[in-house]
Each structure stands twice: as C-alpha cells, then as structure tokens.
C-alpha cells in the first residue's frame, strides 16, 4: 500500500482518540489526526480549539490557523479564549488533546519556546533559535485527562533534556508531576513518523512500544537523542487500512501529509 510516514503518524495518533470524547486540537498535524479520527471511528467527538471554536469540522481545505473560518464556519458555538481553555480545558472537562513539539525529552516535556546552545539558565540568554512560544499547549498538558504528542522523528528533536520546558510532561520523571495537582494525567503517548513511545510505569520515561512497517527498531533508536529503551512487548503497528487512508485523505484535502515521506 502506498502511504507516507506522515500519514502513518496521523493515523496512529488518530487511533488513540475515541468516540464521544471531548477533545482539543491544534492547527496542522494535530487537527488532521483529530478530524481523521472523528470521520473514521471516533463518532460523536466533541472537539474544540483554543481560539474559542466548539464543535466544528474543517471545510474548504486544511485551515491555515486554528481560528479561521475553515474551522469555524459550521461551529456549534463560539466563545472566548479564556472560556475555551478555562471552562473546557482547565476545568478538567477535556478528555484528550493533541499537541506538536519542536523538542521533546524522555519524560515527555515539550519545548516550543527556543533552542539554546547551553541549557543552563536559558531564560536570560538570547536563544540560538527562538521558536513560536507555547500557545495554548500548556493548558492541554496540565489539564486534559491525557494527551498525545506528535512530531517528526529526528535526533535533534528527541533529546535527553529539553532546553526549556514550555509544556510540562512528567517533568523530572517518576511522580514529579504529582506535586502540582494537575487534573491531567500527563502525556499518554508520543506518536512520530517512525513509531510510538509510551511512558514506563513508575519512572515515566518514554520507551518504544510500537514501530511501523516503514521503520525499524534500529532506525528509531538511531534517531532518538536518549538511550531509548524498547518495551519487551514492542509491537509492529498495523498499517493503515484502505478505509483509514480514504478517511484521512478526505480530511487532508490539500495533501499536506503526502508531500514528503
């Protein structure tokens, strides 16, 4: 079957979204995976965006932004940012979110703020590369019951320790999150262009639990910046079914995921 690694990633992430859930998606990959799920199997999903759109399905192509009319033309309701992220997410209502990441570490902490050459006290030095900033991802990582991180699998992206924690995952591992009284349980899984990682119970270090037909355990280990452990029951993730691909491509009208492998 002919599909790209990006499509495999979107389908693998979408499979983790279930019918009837309240879900929050960001723009791009996250929205494609979420709306693929909504169309394919997660019927009755209650989805929202942080800009304040509740219950919409993209029309006219993939939106350039999570606030534009391609994702709000057929909404159930509109609200304020503070209500979307507050009443729906910070309140504890939201079941699941999907976020992206520029840098991810082995405890699932996400950096979307900037890259520094030296990790020490980064906040007070100009970054080597300044990134967008956190947006609404911190609310998702602190307050959604669980969330999925999606990212292209590259060594420079998957690091031992992120330069800056924009959106807290399991922090320093173990039960470090517990002290903050978050509603959210933390990152449930990381889905990449090469495979799937889940937290090891107790340490909460991410370990490899799934690889694709298009990748291998060796390739994944080589492209991960920490010494990635492999789960004893690591699985070969099923390939996209024709129906899954059809549904994904119906959502990915502009072919964003088919551009490169």
């Amino acid at each position: 079957m002919n599909y790209t690694r990006q499509e495999m990633m979107a389908i693998a992430a979408g499979r983790e979204i279930y019918a009837g859930e309240m879900a929050i998606f960001g723009v791009g990959l996250s929205m494609l995976a979420g709306h693929f799920a909504k169309r394919n199997h997660a019927f009755g999903i209650k989805d929202l965006t942080e800009g304040g759109v509740y219950g919409a399905t993209p029309v006219g192509g993939l939106p350039w932004g999570i606030e534009d009319n391609r994702i709000s033309a057929n909404a159930t309701s509109f609200t304020h940012c503070i209500d979307a992220l507050g009443m729906m997410v910070a309140s504890g209502r939201c079941d699941v979110g999907i976020i992206g990441a520029a840098q991810i570490d082995k405890y699932g902490n996400v950096n979307t703020t900037g890259l520094w050459e030296e990790p020490a006290n980064p906040a007070y030095l100009p970054p080597k590369t300044r990134l967008s900033g956190s947006g609404g991802a911190p609310e998702i990582t602190c307050s959604c019951k669980r969330y999925i991180i999606m990212a292209a699998h590259e060594k420079k992206r998957f690091v031992e320790k992120v330069d800056y924690i924009s959106s807290p995952g399991y922090l320093s591992g173990g039960d470090a999150r517990a002290r903050y009284n978050f509603h959210g349980g933390g990152p449930a899984l990381i889905v990449t262009t090469l495979g799937i990682m889940r937290p090891e119970p107790v340490t909460n270090e991410f370990i490899l639990t799934g690889y694709y037909h298009s990748s291998s355990i060796e390739e994944i280990k080589e492209n991960t910046g920490w010494d990635l452990k492999v789960a004893p029951d690591v699985q070969l993730v099923p390939e996209p079914s024709p129906r899954e691909l059809e549904n994904l491509r119906a959502v990915d009208q502009t072919g964003m995921l088919r551009k490169k492998g």
Partner: peptide, 13 residues
C-alpha cells in the same frame, strides 16, 4: 490564580 503551566520554565521569565 491559575494552574498552568506550573513546573514549566516560563516561571523563570
């Protein structure tokens, strides 16, 4: 008052 993002590096800036 707000919970997120406690534990993040934003609190340093």
């Amino acid at each position: 008052p707000c919970r997120s993002p406690l534990g993040s590096d934003m609190l340093k800036t």
